[in-house]
């Protein structure tokens, strides 16, 4: 776990200007390695999603620096021309709800991004099958999202996030809509992915019972980011 996945230096995000300016993140500094499973916790409205969107290059910071892998993507201004291209090649997203595209079946939902990256259909189909088998959902290839349960759809959302072989997965409360049993199951799966696929996952959560599954915990407190490493004996 020594290869850098994401590095943030003096990251600031504020909304509004002058008297109405509200600072949400004030000088965040942290560094995450490849294959780490990281929890991001904070009270509601304290900027978790804002931080996640900035790390995903979907929201422009006010200042600071973001490095993904060995590439500087933001240094007081965007250093990349096409944020979408970066996202579809390097970053996977998992949301609170599965947010699968309702008019695409499971195979199409997962293969959308690889196709957009210009990959060949044969390769894409093979990978989709592998990912679904990996997540024990291999028999749901041609189902529509509406035909699956919430937990199954969330697994498909994880599959979609893995489809472009990302370096980082940003998961915004992926267990919020699930009961405790399913939440633990999803978190275990995410942890397995970090270990076996060498992917860094940053997971926003309110559920402190899930923290022992993570390697690190990022806490937003007073607009600052506190980094806490889970000691090996505490990690489940």
């Amino acid at each position: 776990m020594d290869k850098n996945a994401i590095k943030v230096e003096n990251l600031v995000k504020s909304f509004g200007e002058a008297d109405s300016e509200v600072v949400v993140i004030d000088g965040a500094n942290f560094s995450l390695s490849k294959g780490e499973f990281v929890a991001l916790i904070a009270p509601s409205g304290s900027g978790k999603t804002t931080l996640l969107m900035m790390l995903g290059c979907a929201l422009e910071p006010t200042s600071g620096k973001i490095v993904i892998g060995d590439r500087i993507v933001y240094d007081n201004k965007w250093k990349i021309k096409d944020d979408r291209a970066l996202r579809r090649k390097k970053i996977g997203f998992i949301f609170q709800s599965h947010y699968l595209i309702p008019f695409l079946n499971i195979e199409e939902n997962i293969s959308l991004l690889p196709y957009q990256n210009g990959e060949k259909p044969k390769v894409v189909k093979q990978r989709v099958k592998e990912i679904l088998d990996y997540l024990d959902m291999g028999d749901k290839l041609y189902n529509m999202p509406s035909e699956l349960s919430g937990g199954q759809n969330q697994r498909i959302a994880i599959a979609r996030a893995l489809a472009n072989k990302p370096d980082i997965i940003l998961a915004d409360e992926p267990t919020a809509a699930l009961d405790q049993k399913r939440a633990v199951s999803v978190v275990k799966m995410l942890k397995k992915i970090t270990r076996e696929q060498d992917v860094t996952i940053i997971m926003v959560t309110h559920d402190e019972r899930l923290l022992p599954y993570c390697d690190k915990v990022l806490t937003i407190k007073d607009k600052k980011i506190l980094v806490e490493e889970n000691s090996d004996e505490h990690i489940i």
Binding site: A85, R87, R88, G92, P102, L113, R160, N164
Partner: peptide, 16 residues
Amino acid sequence: IKEISILKLIGISNWT
């Protein structure tokens, strides 16, 4: 809007 926002966020191009 929801589907398009998701597509946008996961990296689907404006052209598509």
